[in-house]
Every structure is written in structure tokens, then in C-alpha cells.
């Protein structure tokens, strides 16, 4: 999730302190606290599985990149020695950028239609991993 959960939680902590000040207009306080509650709910829902999903996704995307080696040299496998979300997210961004490049190539190659379909399947799976209970789609 962008912005990253820790930076949002940090900001919300400061926001709560600011809203404890009596000089804050009640209209602004009500708006800020209502939205803060909503975001805390989202963070709570995503938190437990976030690292697991990123590890799963990074492995799946790298497997696709290896499969597409005939079209583009695959990047290094995903690093898993640092399981902080920020580190896993950087690995995810590196691999997803390579996947976009591979997808751009293989979607124009009829002989690579199986790989093209596999990429679409992984993209669909990535939205399933990130889907929240209140998702509108």
C-alpha cells in the first residue's frame, strides 16, 4: 500500500496529538478523526498478511521473468534476507518494472501467447492478494 503504512500511522499519531488541542475547530476535528478511524481499519486489515503477500508475489513475478528469458534477461531473484515491508516493497517494485518491460514485449509476439496469459493471470492474482473486505470491485 502506498503511502506506506508506517508513515501513515506516524502521521496519524501526530494528528491525534494535534486534535487533542482545544483550539482545533470541532468541524476539522470531527473530519480528521473520522478519516483516521477509517484508515486505521484498513491498516489493521492489511498488516498481518502484507509481508507474506509480497514474498509470494515477488517469487511468482520472478518465475515469470525467468520464463521470459528468451525475450529479456531476467533480473536477480528477490532478496529475502530483509523481511521488512519497506525492503520487500523495493524488491517488488524492481521486479514489477521488469515485468512491465517483459509484458510489453511478449504481448506483441504470437508465439509467446502462453506467457502473456500467465502474466495476466499473475496480475489478476496480485489484485486478489491485495483485495480488502470492503473492496468495491
Amino acid at each position: 500500500m502506498k503511502p506506506e503504512v508506517p508513515s501513515v500511522l506516524g502521521e496519524m499519531a501526530q494528528l491525534l496529538v494535534r486534535n487533542a488541542d482545544q483550539s482545533v475547530h470541532p468541524a476539522d476535528r470531527a473530519s480528521a478523526l473520522g478519516l483516521t478511524a477509517l484508515l486505521l481499519g484498513f491498516a489493521a486489515e492489511a498488516w498481518d498478511a502484507a509481508a507474506h503477500h509480497l514474498v509470494q508475489e515477488n517469487r511468482a513475478v520472478h518465475a515469470l521473468l525467468v520464463r521470459g528469458a528468451a525475450y529479456a534477461p531476467p533480473p536477480a531473484p528477490p532478496a529475502e534476507d530483509d523481511l521488512r515491508l519497506s525492503a520487500l516493497g523495493l524488491e517488488n517494485a524492481r521486479l514489477m518494472a521488469a515485468l512491465i518491460a517483459l509484458h510489453t514485449t511478449v504481448e506483441l509476439r504470437p508465439e509467446a501467447s502462453d506467457l502473456n496469459e500467465a502474466i495476466w493471470a499473475e496480475l489478476r492474482a496480485s489484485t486478489e492478494r491485495r483485495k480488502t473486505a470492503s473492496s468495491v470491485v
Binding site: M1, P3, T36, L39, R130, V136
Partner: peptide, 29 residues
């Protein structure tokens, strides 16, 4: 806008958290 610090209000976080993945799913649909 939130990441760069231009606006750190919670309202700036709600759209990406609530809709970015849903929008991806809408695009797929």
C-alpha cells in the same frame, strides 16, 4: 501528495488505500 509532504491530511491516504487495488480490478474487468 502525502508522500512528498505537500498534504499530510488523512483524506489524501483514503483514495489510494481504498481505490488503487479496486481500480486495478476494474481495469481488468
Amino acid at each position: 501528495a502525502f508522500i512528498d509532504g505537500g498534504n499530510r491530511e488523512p483524506i489524501m491516504v483514503a483514495p489510494p488505500w481504498m481505490l488503487q487495488n479496486a481500480q486495478d480490478r476494474a481495469t481488468l474487468k
